[in-house]
Design a protein around this nucleic acid. Structure first.
Lengths: 195, 195
DNA sequence: TTTCTTTGCTAACGAACGTTAGGAATCGTA
DNA sequence: TACGATTCCTAACGTTCGTTAGCAAAGAAA
């Protein structure tokens, strides 16, 4: 097992992500973060400008990754909406499982961003949700999907996915692609036996 | 519209719930809470013992309500598992929508409980999830439900429901029973058109 | 009227917070 | 060898934190 060499700044980002995830942004002190890094609190400021900068970087980096994944999953407009939706779901799960800690921070700690970052962040999130909404609406129009209320369906769908970081632990019996596949199936086919 | 008379302690609970929900437990100060109540920080301690007591009361009260609803929804063992699951989902949504703020605190702020309350809380939550898991497993055994992995299905199902407090606002176009019905349908039947 | 409970105040406690200033060690590069 | 970055330290700053002590006003109960 080989560990790649991280710059000190990246180490700080990574440790901060883990702490923000388990203890929350507000409940994590710079002295705790420093201790986890084996240094003193003041020393961190040779690498960053403020505590919030750490949160800002985590949240907006993840936003970028979600967008990149979605775009890549849905570029093939020749495909019907349903399989494109499935690919978008799988991409979302891939981002979540690749970086669970950062995802949890992205999902739960953004509200500690101060303005204008907070508003900017919420706009990004809304735009991302709109992508799913439109995909579902397109599938419903084409008769591929049953979704009387695409907005509602999109919320529920993302909800199921976004809860993942609260229970997923790397190294479990299910691999990320397994999880993605199962989630997509369960969401697209439901639980009830039909036909 | 008539407002019932709340004791001062209940007012404190209610205001604390709203603040914990929007700002988070750790980021809410006693002075903020006092200001929202029109009093001084020290005065709150005529009514409570500590800040954590507030969080404790909110979390465990909600746990009680979820259990009571689940038990009441699933007592009729003459019913097949699928309709009992549907009733349990509806009960869960009812609790979530009846007290959105407290639900959000219950779902996200419990980790700021200190031991042993935290462990006790997690045991309750696990027991509640087990209820859904067993219901789904029963339905799968009876051939009513398609769920190759009941534990996975239960997690996903509760995930969809538990995201509700992040977007639900009372007074929207959908009433809580509407939401419960739609969610149950979407989760039981899925999105994809079949047959 | 007296007494107890409820409710709230002011003032302050020690601790912890995010952050900064100024200096020292280490290192690759000129 | 000298030099600028990089990295980290100690010490401290002003602020805010949860909480407590002691006291006062008001209302209910006796």
């Amino acid at each position: 097992m080989e560990t790649i060499q991280l710059s000190r700044k990246d180490q700080i980002d990574q440790t901060a992500t883990a702490l923000f995830r388990t203890r929350g942004f507000a409940a994590t002190s710079m002295r705790e973060l420093a201790a986890a890094l084996g240094m003193e609190a003041g020393s961190i400021y040779s690498h960053i400008r403020s505590k919030e900068e750490l949160l800002h970087r985590i949240c907006f980096r993840l936003a970028d990754e979600f967008f990149a994944g979605f775009d890549e999953a849905t570029t093939d407009t020749a495909l019907p909406a349903a399989p494109r939706l499935r690919r978008a779901v799988e991409s979302h799960v891939r981002v979540l499982t690749t970086d669970v800690a950062a995802s949890a921070v992205f999902l739960h700690e953004w509200r500690h961003l101060s303005e204008p970052a907070r508003t900017e962040f919420l706009a990004l999130r809304e735009r991302y949700e709109a992508g799913f909404r439109e995909l579902i609406a397109e599938g419903a129009s084409a008769g591929e999907l049953y979704a009387p209320d695409p907005a509602f369906a999109a919320l529920t769908l993302l909800a199921s996915l976004n809860w993942l970081p609260t229970w997923y632990r790397p190294g479990g019996s299910l691999t990320p692609p397994d999880i993605a596949h199962r989630l997509a199936n369960q969401l697209l086919f439901g639980l009830e036996v039909r036909c």
